[in-house]
Design a protein around this nucleic acid. Structure first.
Lengths: 125, 125
DNA sequence: TTCCATACTGACCGGATGGTAACCATGGCC
DNA sequence: GGCCATGGTTACCATCCGGTCAGTATGGAA
């Protein structure tokens, strides 16, 4: 269903935006920055997203090289999703976005409504 | 039609993404970083976008505090769009996105297809 | 009196996106 | 054989987003 990588915009900033903006991609990435996660884990961590959409977002990110999918042939089967190096390299970008998002909320007087930009300590840390 | 600011996501990064990602917003912003622009100018600068959509994007950005719209009651009427301080503060964020977009293109072997991240010198410079 | 420029607005449309709900396949276990 | 868990897929649908194209308003110029 997706042999052809859908042509991304040639303007780099638009390209980046297209790759990052999916309803759940940021949240998912935050969790993957923490380390590999199974599908069932992600479902627990992000209960608001349905399984179909979760997989959808993960597959898109896989297609775009942000996420690695590894299947362990066990019973019951285990699948682990992890952030690739390219995916990891999004962390500072997401941080910049987050900080700007906070500023935006502040300046529009909605400071109370937004969360912070804390990124969980890496597993290895 | 838009007294109520459409509720933005409370996760700051998502908020930022929502505000920035519109088909033409980045390009328009790049031009506004250069200084105020009339609608007709923007139409020339970004010929690929239709007038309706151009106005649409500008109005959304105005609503989100990125863009200022000033009407000069002349004949024929003149309207100038400019980046607010909040809008200007997006420049480094767009730069980060742009640089990441380039990296992404490189790592996917599409380096040739993307442009660079050069931001035009400010009018005042 | 018609024409032009500027800056909008509105009707309509198609594709992408995200959402729900249901179903499928594997293979161990009771 | 029926049930469980995991990790999917499928059909279907509503909404959004951007796109075309045509129309509106103002007021000076020809």
């Amino acid at each position: 269903m997706a042999d052809i990588i859908k042509r991304l915009p040639s303007l780099p900033s638009e390209r980046a935006l297209k790759v990052i903006s999916g309803r759940w991609k940021a949240v998912i990435l935050y969790h993957l920055f923490d380390g590999p996660r199974r599908l069932s884990e992600l479902r627990r961590l992000v209960p608001a997203v349905s399984q179909k959409v979760l997989i959808q977002q993960l597959r898109e990110m896989e297609e775009h090289g942000l996420v690695h999918r590894e299947i362990f042939r066990e019973v019951p089967p285990r699948v682990e999703y992890s952030a690739t190096t390219l995916g990891q390299s999004l962390e500072p970008v997401l941080l910049a976005l987050c900080e700007w998002g906070q500023r935006h909320a502040e300046e529009l007087g909605e400071f109370d409504q937004v969360g912070d930009c804390v990124i969980r300590p890496r597993q290895s840390a």
